[in-house]
Simulated assay, not measured.
Amino acid sequence: MTSPLSPDAAGILNTIIRSRRTVKPEFFTGEDVPRPVLEQLLENATWAPTHKKTEPWLFKVFQQKALERLGNYLADHYRAHTPADKFSAVKEQQNREKPLRCAAVIAICMRPPAADLPEWEEIAAVACAVENLWLSMTAYGLSGYWSSPAAMTEGAEFLELQPGERCLGIFYLGHAPVQDTVRRRAPLAEKVKWVTE
């Protein structure tokens, strides 16, 4: 088998895939990520597979002072939409503070699907783009967390989305100390059936 990539490329890719972690923003340091790095991460995201080359993803990146505005929106939405018997002042404050620990928070949005395409294919394409983003972040030593709070999936007005566009959640991005978490997957034999005839 030949490849235009270096002989080490497969090994590097295997390591990156197995090193990807979900890290919640409370573990982030608040350290900045340079704009060119963020642009490279998002560029890599856009190389995800997409049916009929529709590229349905749309990313809205919150940084700097906009992180405070996002935190206030998340906290206010939580307060306004949580029944009194389930409301927690601690959770409200956590919603307000989470974005402030991040280098950036990316709203993962999707343009409306074409009439001849099922919506699930466009959602799958956006999810592939997020995985590209996540793997690229791992290669840069960054951490991330994809969350889908109602504040964002119902946040078309806050995000200034156009008719038909929708938000599939937000991606918290930042620096976090290396975590020695043990990750496991069930054996491949439990999940694969080889069909040869």
Rank of each mutant, 00 (worst) to 15 (best):
Q162G: 02
L135S: 09
A9R: 13
E122T: 00
E55Q: 06
E97L: 11
L58Q: 13
R185P: 04
T54R: 13
L13F: 04
V33P: 11
K193V: 15
F171W: 15
Y73L: 01
M110K: 03
A115I: 08
A127T: 07
E160I: 11
V178M: 04
G155R: 11
K52Y: 08
A124T: 02
V37F: 01
E92N: 13
R111K: 13
D180W: 10
K53F: 08
R183N: 03
F28Q: 10
V23L: 00
V126P: 00
R101T: 06
P187R: 14
G71V: 10
A189N: 04
L133P: 01
T22N: 02
K86S: 11
L38A: 03
E122G: 04
S19Q: 06
E92H: 15
S88H: 02
R20P: 03
T138E: 06
L168F: 06
Y78L: 05
T138A: 01
P99H: 00
T196K: 15
D116S: 09
E39D: 03
F28M: 05
F171D: 05
A127P: 00
T29C: 03
P187V: 14
K53R: 08
L5M: 10
A114Q: 14
S143A: 12
A114N: 07
A115D: 14
K24Q: 11
E154G: 15
K52H: 08
A115T: 06
N44T: 05
R111H: 06
L13V: 00
P49F: 13
V126D: 06
P4M: 14
F28Y: 07
F62V: 02
A10F: 08
A75I: 01
R69N: 13
A45S: 01
R20W: 04
A84L: 07
P118N: 02
S147E: 10
T2S: 14
S147M: 09
N95I: 05
L42C: 04
A10G: 12
E165S: 10
A107S: 01
T15K: 15
A48F: 02
P177E: 03
Y78S: 07
E92K: 04
D116I: 04
A129K: 10
R183D: 05
R166L: 04
L74P: 13
E131A: 08
K52V: 14
R184M: 08
N72P: 11
I108R: 07
E119K: 14
K60Q: 15
W134K: 06
D8N: 14
A45Y: 02
A89H: 12
I106P: 06
V23F: 04
P149G: 08
P112A: 01
E131T: 12
